[in-house]
Design a protein around this nucleic acid. Structure first.
Lengths: 347, 347
DNA sequence: CGGGAGGCTGAGAGCGCTCCCGGCGAACGG
DNA sequence: CCGTTCGCCGGGAGCGCTCTCAGCCTCCCG
């Protein structure tokens, strides 16, 4: 590519002049070249290359009312956000899909509740065409905001308050089959002959945690409530929950943890107490988190979900909505992706 | 905030009309209100509120030639990117600082080498005012790109090829005092009476790994080369390196790992071999990674760096550069932040 | 009381692009 | 050979904003 010319960047006007055509024709070529005779297309392309022309996105946005950018809103006040590989992989999937469609990713991190004003102003300002948001908690103000400013939004993870469609059209989301995956995990433990199967749940203000707990209960209809402890999706939380469970039910012979991080915490506590995994206690996690599940000792049996694929799906859903005609108000259907049990040494 | 009005968003023109002033005056008020009489300011502010006016960023950018956005380029093809808490915390710091200055964060993930063309086009397109980039490898094409398109850039971590100032002005970066921190770690092990101190280095195409190795050598001038093994900053890599070290030097009595993730891998191998930490082998890590160093068993002695602060610093440096007058070509000075040894149970 | 200075305001140009629409030439049918 | 259609191109308006500059009005000083 040519060096930046001194002074200002070349404009479409300059390209047109050099190619000996009008600005309109130059614009047509830059945007695909339909309806322009071949030799003119060629001339304009040359001029673009020679001048090192790059379209000015602001000018383009001003008239098309499209920014070619999408906001990714992460409203997780905790450190988890990135350190949980879950988010990183989902973002990676999103990024790939957006990139493939020449769309930019604007990252909006929410630190505290006051930030929501900023988010609202930002979305209302028309900086982006749509938004992707994650794992809402039950009282999250985000849906109200996106609705108010009319911003097309796709959520990652089923939102808390809407089982079906809300009052004003449903909300689009992409989620894994948490409940089904949990069922499979527990059934697997039953198949292994386990009878006192405990569950370390995630924070129950998140639907993924609730769904996994529900899946556990689906299979263990008469489960002893003492066999259920709530964690917070971190290793430390998992360890604490495990300790509490052992206190209450020393006879347990299996644990289904709602994610792999908590499973590793549980693993540590079990080892400390001299309990062998899986001989004394079988353990199953959830997520198949890289650098965690496989490298655990013993490697974790876990429920895999295609996290990166879910990210891609979120982006696809959003982009499809954005590319619909203006009048078309239909909300895209939500998608639930399948899970799969991965058997390793811990069960 | 008022609901989105039917049809189009209100423009500055509409605000001006409603307030009974000219568009110019309305603009002045929206941008701070200097030099406008108080009662007019009041009137315009009211009109803004009543109409729910939000400035159109594209129009503004078109004339000011400022986008109010900064690119964060992450060119780490590995999974590490986010799962290494290092990046997440740095991004968090960056995000905080940018938010405080009303600047947006555009995330650019580089998946493979072909992506660099896309990055170059993006930067050349003037979508952003500046860029922040991370941990360059020695042959990274990024510096050439940012220079070519004249994009102000601050790097996280000292770039590989430029010890001092390059041919055309130096490159601004923010880095921790890796070498000094490493020296302190090794001295600490010496103070504990250790004499056969091994080092698990990071990938030596990254300057942070090189600097930490150099710090190790600064203190152990006559270190046995067999005591040094190269890892890759992951737990698995650390485990492999540890195994290799034990193979070569069964008599080692201490290990300084170039990061905490590798230290945990080493820890696992040591335990497997029946070696007690710190009784048989003392262990020191680097980073003070959350959810890793403190929760390890035993908790890791490690070298803490203020990662989030480094992120903030990167953003500050960049913003300062951007707010300089156009003519001022000076590159901001790079910053090296201090480290501190945190003593825990592993040494 | 006149003149100059200085503070506010408004008119208007213009940022770089897209897209509507009118015109023009070629092609084709009668 | 003329009228009509159709494909292609250029002129020009306009997206919403900022900013310069000229003009006005007030105030102060001589």
């Amino acid at each position: 590519m040519p060096e930046q010319l001194p002074g200002h960047r070349p404009t479409l006007e300059a390209v047109a002049e050099r190619a000996g055509v009008s600005r309109a024709t130059a614009s047509r070529v830059v945007n695909g070249g339909d309806g322009v005779r071949a030799h003119l297309v060629e001339k304009v392309r040359e001029a673009v290359l020679e001048l090192g022309y790059v379209p000015n996105p602001a000018a383009r946005t001003l008239v098309t009312r499209r920014t070619g950018a999408v906001a990714v809103i992460i409203a997780e006040p905790e450190i988890r956000i990135f350190s949980d590989p879950f988010f990183s992989r989902q973002i990676r999937g999103i990024s790939k899909e957006l990139t493939a469609h020449d769309t930019q990713l604007v990252l909006l991190l929410v630190e505290d509740r006051g930030d929501y004003d900023r988010i609202e102003r930002y979305l209302a300002g028309g900086h982006v065409d749509g938004a992707l948001a994650f794992s809402l908690h039950t009282d999250d103000p985000l849906p109200a905001i996106t609705r108010r400013v009319g911003m097309p939004t796709v959520y990652g993870g089923r939102p808390g308050w809407t089982a079906g469609s809300g009052e004003h059209g449903g909300i689009a989301y992409v989620d894994a089959d948490n409940r089904g995956g949990a069922r499979e995990a527990v059934r697997h433990l039953l198949d292994r002959g386990r009878r006192r199967i405990a569950h370390i749940a995630g924070p129950l203000d998140q639907t993924s945690a609730v769904d996994r707990l529900d899946g556990y209960r689906d299979v263990l209809l008469d489960a002893d409530p003492a066999l259920i402890a709530e964690g917070d999706f971190t290793a430390t939380g998992g360890a604490e929950a495990m300790a509490a469970l052992l206190e209450r039910c020393p006879d347990l012979d299996a644990v289904f943890a709602a994610n792999d991080l908590m499973a590793t915490g549980a693993l540590r506590v079990l080892r400390e107490r001299g309990l062998a995994v899986p001989a004394d206690v079988a353990l199953v996690g959830f997520d198949d988190a890289e650098l965690v599940a496989e490298t655990a000792d013993p490697p974790l049996t876990t429920v895999r979900q295609d996290i990166e694929g879910m990210g891609r799906l979120m982006a696809q859903l959003l982009l499809r909505t954005l590319n619909r005609e203006q009048g078309d108000r239909a909300v895209p259907a939500s998608v639930v992706t399948p899970t799969a049990l991965v058997r390793r040494g811990s069960s």
